[in-house]
Amino acid sequence: MATTKLKGNIVNLAGNEVNIGDKAPKVTVIAHDLSEVKVGGKAQIIAAVPSLDTPVCAEETRKFNEDAVQTDVEVVVVSMDLPFAAGRFCTTEGIENLKVGSDFRNKDFANAYGVLVADGPLQGVTCRAIFVTNEEGIVIHKEICEDITDEPNYEAVFNAIK
């Protein structure tokens, strides 16, 4: 079972572990307007965050929103937030250059990508993780942040798509 940390304490991750070289699972998450957002199967930067309502997740989403305009690769941020809360966050923060999706219904994304926090205080949300997929939907970069409170390595993410 894969693990990460929350403020230095080990937490287990549930679901199917996806690694570099694997075909990224195709799943659907829900946008703020309740439409569907497709994850997997094409060139994407997929950022899993626990909740947009935390400082680190908000900063990460703002950073990807700024950098998304510099690439042709679709950026999708996935959290367990309700779609309405995600929509309010995007409106308030001016998030317009990426897609934000909620995995609240069935946790399909979290289970398919192996990023579901299985225990500890954040049990039931996604850990902080990044997957970069190429045009064929193959994972070419993966980062499960060492601690859920850490931001990802943005430079490595954008180097992977060059």
Rank of each mutant, 00 (worst) to 15 (best):
L122T: 12
V37D: 10
K23W: 08
V18I: 14
R88D: 04
K5S: 14
A118C: 05
E96S: 15
G120I: 07
D53C: 04
H32I: 04
V117D: 00
D72Y: 05
E36G: 04
T71D: 03
E135C: 11
A14E: 12
G21L: 05
C90F: 03
A110C: 03
K107N: 13
Q70Y: 15
V132C: 11
G101Y: 04
I20Y: 02
A14L: 12
A68E: 05
A85R: 08
N12A: 04
F109M: 11
H32F: 15
L122C: 09
V56R: 13
T54M: 07
N97C: 06
I10V: 15
T3L: 03
G41V: 01
E93C: 11
V75G: 06
E66F: 07
K23M: 15
G94E: 10
K99N: 14
L6S: 03
E143C: 02
V115K: 00
V115Y: 02
F64C: 03
V76L: 11
T61D: 11
E66V: 12
N111M: 15
F131A: 01
G101V: 13
T92S: 11
R128W: 01
D22W: 01
G41H: 04
I140N: 02
V11G: 15
A118M: 03
R128L: 05
A85D: 04
R128N: 10
Q123H: 12
I140L: 04
G8Y: 00
E143W: 05
S51E: 05
K142Y: 03
V76C: 14
N134Q: 08
V78D: 01
Y113W: 08
F104W: 07
S51H: 09
T92W: 06
R88Y: 06
S35Q: 02
P121H: 05
I130S: 02
A58K: 14
G101I: 09
G114M: 03
G101L: 11
C145W: 02
V115W: 11
P50L: 10
I138V: 12
T54P: 09
V115E: 07
T3E: 07
C127L: 14
A85M: 03
N134E: 06
A110T: 01
N111P: 09
K99A: 14
I30K: 12
R62L: 13
D33L: 07
V27K: 04
V75I: 05
N97Y: 08
M80Q: 12
V39Y: 04
H141R: 00
I138P: 04
R105A: 09
T3W: 08
D103Y: 03
T92Y: 07
N111D: 08
I10M: 13
K38N: 12
K5W: 12
V139R: 01
N106H: 14
L34Q: 14
F131M: 00
E36S: 15
R88H: 06
D22F: 00
D81F: 02
G40N: 00
V125G: 04
E93G: 09
N106A: 13
A110E: 00
G94I: 14
S51G: 04
L52Q: 08
D72P: 05
A14T: 11
E59I: 15
P55A: 06
G15T: 02
K142V: 06
V75E: 02
C90M: 12
D103P: 02
A86G: 15
N111T: 15
A68W: 09
D119T: 01
I144P: 02
Y113H: 07
K142N: 03
